[in-house]
Design a protein around this nucleic acid. Structure first.
Lengths: 105, 105
DNA sequence: GACGCATATGTCGTATCTGACATATCGTGT
DNA sequence: ACACGATATGTCAGATACGACATATGCGTC
């Protein structure tokens, strides 16, 4: 597993290296986490491409800078609902969201 | 708006015909609801194609029949997280989920 | 190395989602 | 008309996600 992904999975609430994950992380769970990471990355891409700060994005979507940071980090406390709603609020289309999810890691 | 979609939007917690919706339902909100409806429909398709009852699906995903019914109805109380997790647990792939979301209504 | 700005992390009270249960409605066979 | 399996709807206590705030870390510029 490459280091970047490992770091992100860790941030998402899964620690690589302890027994539970290697033994118990099912295919669905892995797919779910990667799907969430893809949305989080896309969220950051959209923001950076517009040259926006996290604080500005927070204003646009009616949230706070800290939550935006957690969204981009795919923190365990952020839902896919929030990511999708936020992306749509930032101007992404439903089609784009679907494509981001479809794309293989 | 066709009657079927109208009924579903209503079930999803939006009542057509009152002022708030026609005045205040933004494009993002509409896109979000339709995205959720697409997942709900897909959930039903997967179940029916396998010839499963809602009770059986509930067992497979560790939930209850009533929640499965609400998922398929895109009830306001079900999250996209739950829909996606459930679909993955039923054997749908991340790619399929993305395609369902991408597809236009 | 102090300042300013952007991003990350921790915590908290409240709001929303969850599975479960009860119960209602539908559909179909007898 | 009745029974019965499947699906829908209402409700609730506990679980989880939310925005907000405080604070920490990074990172250029002076």
């Amino acid at each position: 597993m490459d280091k970047t992904k490992q770091k992100k999975l860790a941030a998402a609430g899964f620690r690589t290296g302890d027994a539970k994950d290697f033994l118990g992380l099912t295919d669905e769970e892995a797919a779910f986490v990667e799907l969430k990471l893809a949305l989080a990355d896309f969220m950051r891409d959209v923001r950076v491409e517009h040259g926006w700060t996290q604080t500005h994005v927070a204003r646009l979507i009616g949230s706070s800078q800290s939550r935006v940071a957690k969204m981009e980090a795919a923190d365990a406390s952020v839902s896919i609902d929030l990511l999708v709603k936020s992306l749509l609020a930032l101007g992404a289309t439903r089609k784009q969201v679907g494509q981001v999810i479809s794309r293989a890691a």
